[in-house]
Every structure is written in structure tokens, then in C-alpha cells.
Design a protein around this nucleic acid. Structure first.
Length: 438
RNA sequence: GUGGCUGUAGCUCAGCUGGUAGAGCACUGGGUUGUGGUCCCAGGUGUCGGGGGUUCGAGUCCCCUCAGUCACCCCA
């Protein structure tokens, strides 16, 4: 008989929080569509072999199983699992529908994902991501790597959240550098360098010599590279100054310069080249993005992605892409936790129509209907209580206006101002029509 | 998934080395019998996260479990 309790990692926001989330999602969607990304939703579930095609994430995947499945089929449903991001399902969708799509194909996708990891602040087992990707057939022009971060800078910039810092790096640059240095295990080096923020340069150097087969001098060079960070193209000179020569390094360098140049022009101070950014080792092949929320740096990236040249391939078909994903639930969780996101009222209602007595309900319903038709969220009082109670009902919910049908008057209960009004023509100030977030 | 810390009213929190439920705000009713907020009075404010154990007796000690949080891992 114990009361039902919450489930770890599966957040359920309050109505006020949900209204905030919906408004953020609306604005993100509007931003995405303003760049011409088309909406897509894929099923929640993918075959396990699709999910595990890249990366060693098997432990986090939630499996789908029927309650009544008998032991013979292993209790499984053909090995289905809930998707843990939106990129892998998108790659599957591409291969399945390539013949019906126009390329380059740009889509956005705003959906839940699931990961069976241990939850903590800003990390959940069920969470919403807002994803954009551009994919082409055979070759994807690099200018999309330049465009993608500008889209999310726009999207996140339209939200009432702290400023962001979008860090960009390029895998080719790092791998070329390591190759030019002749380091034994470039992947291990990448992994070690990625921990720089967390464990500091001394520990990273240990890792580099220990696991990546680097000499002391090589480790020092890797650290020097990782510590380069700049909001403009000056980072390229800093890399050149390290004196390493490699064709792949030059290619990555040139690409990163293009991204940073565009960032400096369109979003000054937001986008920076940060050569320590590595991302998960799985499918990224070039540009990589990560995003810090000012004041919440320690909770990790709230928006990341990159270029993947080999994620969607089938036989001779190849669909290179570049994309990025906004961690909506993470952003909300952090800001709710800090108490810095609020909404002007916890219900949509703008007007409460007071009810003089039950017999008047049809007349009150007509007033409410008229207001609603004109786009003003309206509800009628639940019962014909004393007017004082009805006003209090509105006040407790933050409803700004009470409509008195007998005299045909509307009262702003914040100021106490009351005036005669016609439901056919009365307008609330635009700021009062819907709840506003700040 | 491994380990650490935390859990008392709707919220913020007290509660001494085991001895019988507490404050502020919020909430409900009334003072005010159809125009709220201030003020006054009266009051639910409680499975002490849940279960088990030790004890004459457990909010307090022990075990398990759930949730939150932190570190590792990984990442939105």
C-alpha cells in the first residue's frame, strides 16, 4: 500500500515546468525551420544490431520485452531496444528511405531518448534531444560543417538561458598532429587529451605515456596542442608554431579555420576553437562540437555533435553527414535546479469568468467561448462561490483577469483596475495573453 | 553498473550518548452572509522515504531496499 514513487532517472516536470519546456521546444523548432530543416520522427525502437553497429554502448541500451514472451524465443522481441540518441536511428532511416529522399537532406528531430546510466543532476535515463543533421550522397560539402553550429547558436540564443560557449575542434587536425608526431596509439591519445579539464595536464601526460605509447616529449606536444583555444583564426598560428608537419593536420586545420571564421562573423564571442575537444570515439571523422552553458560548465556539454562520414553506408551507397543535438532535458534540469527559469503563471488561463450562480453558467460559457475564439485562454469559475473566493481562485493560479458577467466588467486583479468591457472587442495586453518565461 | 553522502509537514529546516511530534511560510474554515491580497482566531499540518531486525521502548542503532546527489564510467 505504499504510495507510488518516482523512478530514478525518469523526470516528471510540473505543469509550470512543462509549459516552460514546451515554449523552449517551440522556439527551438521555429529556429530549425527558419533554416529549412524538415521535421522527422522515428520510432522509439530499433533492432539491436542497428543500435550496436557503432560503439560499445550495449550496457546502456534498454531492451524491449513482452511480459508474456515465452522462454523459447529467449523472451525477446527480435532483439529490439530503445534508441539512445537520434543520430543512429536517423542513419537507419536514411538507408531505408534513401530512394524517396532529396539530397542534400536536412531534417530536425525532437524526441525522447533512453540510456540506462546512473542518473545525477543533468543526467537522466529518459531525456529529450533536439537534433539537426544534413546528409548528402557520396560527398557532403564542408560548408554544412560551418552552418550547423550557427543554427544552434541561433536556437539557443532565442531562449531565456545563460549565454553559451560553443567549442569546435577537428578530428583530422588532432589525428594528423599525432601522426606527424608518430605517436603509437592516436585514439588513446585523443581519449587521454579529452580528460584534460577533469584530471589536469599532469595526469593527462601520465596517460599519454602510459596508454598511448607517447614519449615525454610527445606527451608535452600533445598537451601543448590541447591547450590551444581561441575565438578566432589565431589558433592556426599557434598550431604551426608547434612545428608538426602532416597532410591530415593541414586539412583539419583548414577546415577548422573555416568554421571559426564564420563563427566570428555571425556569432562573435560564442564560437571558439578548442583543441582539447575530442567527443566519444565512435563515428565522428572531422569537425566536432561541444557546448558549455555559462555557470554550468561542470555539468558537461548541453549540445554536441559533429561530422560523420561513415555512419550511414550500405554496399556502395554512402551518406556522409554532419549534425548536432541540443540536450533539452539537461538544460531544463540544470536551470530548474538553480531556480533560474520561471514562468509568469502555472496555468495558461488569461481570464477567469466569474460565475454569479449556477443558472448563469450557459451565459458565462458564451462569454468564455467568445474570448477563446479570439485567442484568449479562458475558463469559467468552478462554482458560484462568493466573488472574493472566485477572485482568490484566480489569484492563486496567477490568472491576471476576472470577468464579471453581471455588469460586463473585467478586472485586472494585480492592479485592482476594473472597467466595463465587451467580450467581442476586449484585448489583454500582449504580454498577458500567454504565460511568459524568463 | 561500482563506491561515498543525504532522506522529518506541501516548502525551508530543528529534534543532545535510544524515552510519547516541533518552528516559519504555504494550506483549510471562520471574523467579513457576493470583489481577493493586510490583520486576528481556530485548525488536517506527519506511513519520521519503504521494509525487516535489535530493544521494555527506534526519527535516533543494524541490515536490505527506493529516491536524490557526488565520484568513476559514459555522455544530451
Amino acid at each position: 500500500m505504499t504510495r507510488p514513487a518516482s523512478i530514478s532517472g525518469f523526470p516528471e516536470w510540473s505543469p509550470a515546468q512543462r509549459m516552460i519546456e514546451q515554449q523552449l521546444l517551440d522556439r527551438i523548432r521555429t529556429s530549425f525551420e527558419s533554416y529549412g530543416f524538415a521535421p522527422l520522427e522515428t520510432r522509439a525502437v530499433e533492432p539491436l544490431d542497428q543500435l550496436l553497429r557503432k560503439g560499445e554502448t550495449s550496457k546502456e541500451v534498454y531492451l524491449l520485452r513482452r511480459l508474456q514472451a515465452d522462454g523459447e524465443d529467449g523472451g525477446g522481441d527480435a532483439g529490439l531496444g530503445l534508441h539512445f540518441d537520434l543520430t543512429v536511428p536517423f542513419a537507419r532511416y536514411l538507408l531505408e528511405n534513401a530512394g524517396r529522399l532529396q539530397f542534400p537532406f536536412r531534417r530536425y528531430q525532437i524526441q525522447k531518448s533512453w540510456r540506462g546510466e546512473r542518473p545525477q543532476e543533468g543526467r537522466y535515463r529518459e531525456f529529450t534531444q533536439a537534433d539537426i543533421d544534413v546528409v548528402d550522397r557520396d560527398e557532403l560539402p564542408f560548408h554544412y560543417d560551418v552552418e550547423i553550429p550557427l543554427v544552434v547558436i541561433d536556437a539557443l540564443g532565442s531562449l531565456p538561458i545563460p549565454p553559451i560557449r560553443l567549442q569546435v575542434n577537428n578530428r583530422k587536425l588532432c589525428e594528423g598532429f599525432y601522426r606527424g608526431l608518430d605517436i603509437g596509439d592516436p585514439e588513446a591519445a585523443l581519449r587521454a587529451v579529452d580528460k584534460l579539464d577533469k584530471i589536469g595536464p599532469a595526469k593527462v601526460a601520465e596517460l599519454l605515456t602510459g596508454t598511448a605509447g607517447a614519449s615525454q616529449a610527445q606527451a608535452k606536444a600533445c598537451l601543448a596542442l590541447a591547450e590551444i583555444s581561441a575565438p578566432d583564426e589565431s589558433f592556426a598560428e599557434a598550431v604551426h608554431a608547434l612545428g608538426v608537419k602532416d597532410p591530415l593536420l593541414d586539412e583539419g586545420l583548414a577546415e577548422l579555420v573555416r568554421v571559426v571564421e564564420a563563427g566570428r562573423e555571425h556569432a562573435p564571442g560564442v564560437l571558439v576553437a578548442d583543441l582539447r575537444i575530442a567527443r566519444g570515439l565512435d563515428y565522428y571523422t572531422g569537425t566536432v562540437y561541444e557546448t558549455q552553458l555559462t555557470g554550468f560548465e561542470r555539468y558537461g556539454s548541453v549540445c554536441s555533435g559533429g561530422r560523420y562520414d561513415n555512419l550511414a553506408t550500405s554496399g556502395t551507397d554512402r551518406f556522409p553527414g554532419v549534425g548536432i543535438s541540443i540536450g533539452v532535458t539537461r538544460i531544463l534540469g540544470l536551470l530548474f535546479g538553480a531556480g533560474t527559469l520561471s514562468i509568469s503563471r502555472p496555468v495558461p488561463t488569461c481570464v477567469l469568468v466569474a460565475l454569479p450562480d449556477e443558472d448563469s453558467r450557459p451565459a458565462c460559457d458564451r462569454i468564455a467561448a467568445t474570448l477563446r475564439r479570439r485567442g484568449i485562454p479562458t475558463e469559467v469559475a468552478p462554482s458560484a462561490a462568493k466573488y472574493g473566493r472566485q477572485i482568490r481562485f484566480a489569484q492563486r493560479r496567477g490568472i491576471p483577469y476576472v470577468w464579471f458577467p453581471d455588469g460586463g466588467e473585467v478586472r485586472d486583479i494585480r492592479s485592482g483596475e476594473q472597467a466595463t468591457a465587451d467580450p467581442q472587442t476586449w484585448q489583454p495586453p500582449e504580454a498577458d495573453r500567454y504565460p511568459t518565461i524568463s
